[in-house]
């Protein structure tokens, strides 16, 4: 798990953006969703989740708003248009990195 946390640092933002691509979610739901998709490879702790959320919010990629569901107030995040562009750009970037790293690893 130590390795995966290391990896998370750079990619958590991308993962959060991706998680929010389909629908707005609140903090717990985002963490759950990441854990669920990665089949438990990445467990997102509050200590890294919230700083990342706030960084993205400040950059204007996501926007948070308070909702009341089931009688409780939760802060739900949605992707902004700028966030959508950023996600597309980061996806491309990521694909390039993956293929490049793959090329290096596969080469003899």
């Amino acid at each position: 798990m130590a390795q995966s946390t290391e990896l998370l640092k750079g990619t958590l933002g991308l993962l959060i953006l991706r998680t929010l691509e389909l629908e707005p979610r609140h903090g717990v739901a985002i963490a759950d969703r990441i854990q669920q998709i990665t089949k438990g490879t990445f467990t997102v702790k509050a200590g890294s989740l919230f700083p990342a959320l706030h960084r993205l919010e400040q950059e204007g990629f996501i926007a948070g708003e308070w909702l009341v569901t089931e009688g409780r107030r939760i802060k739900s995040y949605r992707l902004t248009p700028a966030g959508r562009q950023q996600l597309a750009a980061e996806k491309k970037q990521w694909a390039r990195i993956v293929s490049a790293v793959g090329l290096v690893l596969d080469s003899e």
Binding site: H26, G27, V28, F50
Partner: peptide
């Protein structure tokens, strides 16, 4: 204050 509320709601949820 906003952050406080958000974290509390997170703890509540879990």
């Amino acid at each position: 204050a906003d952050l406080d509320a958000e974290l509390l709601s997170y703890v509540d949820e879990i």
